[in-house]
Design a protein around this nucleic acid. Structure first.
Lengths: 139, 139
DNA sequence: TAGCAATTGAGACTGAATCGCAATTTGACA
DNA sequence: TGTCAAATTGCGATTCAGTCTCAATTGCTA
C-alpha cells in the first residue's frame, strides 16, 4: 500500500522520510475522493498536527512523482479566453514540446451528451485535454 | 458582428457602452486565438490606451455573458488531487453547487484512442471535465 | 553517535484577480 | 441641449493560493 511505495520512492531519490511527510501521507490515505492542499492542511491542524502549510505544499509533488496521487481538475485561476466561433474543439497537448493539436469529433460530443443524460446532468460546456507525446516527440 | 451584439446585450441589461468597454472589445476582436486578461491589458497600455486592469477584468465576464467570448483551458495551477486508483474516471462539475459526478465510459476511452491514432498522438493520460448543472440545480 | 545534507516552520513574497470608494461618465428624459 | 441618477471608472488596498528564504532542526549513513 501507499506507505511502502512512498518510502521506496524517497529512498531511491535520496530523500528522507520525515514525520511530517508521514503524517501528510497518512491523512491523505484516510481521506476519500478529492481534496485540496489547503483543506488537507486545516484537517491536519485540527487533529493537532504541527505540520506547516509549506510542508503540505512541498510534499504533494513528491506524492505525485511517486505515483500515489494524481492531479485532477484545475481551479479557474489565470484564465485564458477565446472568441466564440462555430468550431468547438478539444486539445491534445504534448507534454514534451508543448505542441497543441486541436481536434473535433462529433461522435465524441454525442457520446458525452448521452453520458450526461444518464446522469441527469445538463451540460453547458466541456474541456477535454489529452496529454501525451506528439508524433515528433514520440521516438 | 461582435460590436452590435455587445451593444444589444448592454442595452437589454441596462448597462452602458463606455469607451473603455469599446476599446477592450476592439482589441479582442483584433487578436487571434487565445489570450489572457493581463496580456490584453498590456497590449492596450502599449497602444496608449488608458483603460485600467480592473476594467479589463470587469469587462471580460460581460463579453462571456453576451456570447462573444468563452473561457478556454486553464493553465497548470492545480488545486485538487486524488489518490491514484485503478478506476480512471472523468468528471461532471456543477457550476452552481460545485457537485462533482465521477463517471467512466469505456466507449469514450476507445473513441479517444482512435482519435489519437488518427493524429499520430501517443496518449498518456487525459482529463475530461463537463461543466453544467446537476439534476438538483437545473430547475 | 557524529556530521552533514535534507527538511522544517515562520513569515515574507508573488502574481492573478477582486474590491471599496471617490470622482467621472453615460444616456434617458425633459 | 442640459440635468441628473445610476453605472462605471481608476487607484490602490486586499485577497487568495501557492512559493520562497533562511536559520534552526532532523534523518540517515558511516
Amino acid at each position: 500500500m501507499g506507505k511502502a511505495v512512498f518510502k521506496d520512492f524517497l529512498y531511491t531519490k535520496g530523500l528522507k522520510l520525515t514525520k511530517e511527510r508521514d503524517e501528510i501521507l497518512n491523512e491523505i490515505l484516510l481521506t476519500r475522493g478529492h481534496f485540496d492542499p489547503d483543506k488537507l492542511y486545516i484537517q491536519l491542524k485540527n487533529k493537532g498536527s504541527k505540520v506547516s502549510r509549506a510542508s503540505v505544499y512541498r510534499t504533494i509533488p513528491l506524492l505525485i512523482q511517486s505515483g500515489i496521487l494524481e492531479q485532477v481538475e484545475r481551479i479557474e485561476r489565470h484564465a485564458h479566453y477565446e472568441k466564440i466561433s462555430d468550431n468547438h474543439h478539444d486539445h491534445m497537448i504534448c507534454t514534451k514540446c508543448g505542441k497543441v493539436i486541436e481536434f473535433h469529433s462529433p461522435d465524441l460530443e454525442t457520446l458525452q451528451e448521452e453520458l450526461c443524460l444518464k446522469e441527469k446532468f445538463k451540460s453547458i460546456r466541456h474541456s477535454l485535454e489529452i496529454f501525451g507525446y506528439c508524433d515528433k516527440c514520440n521516438n
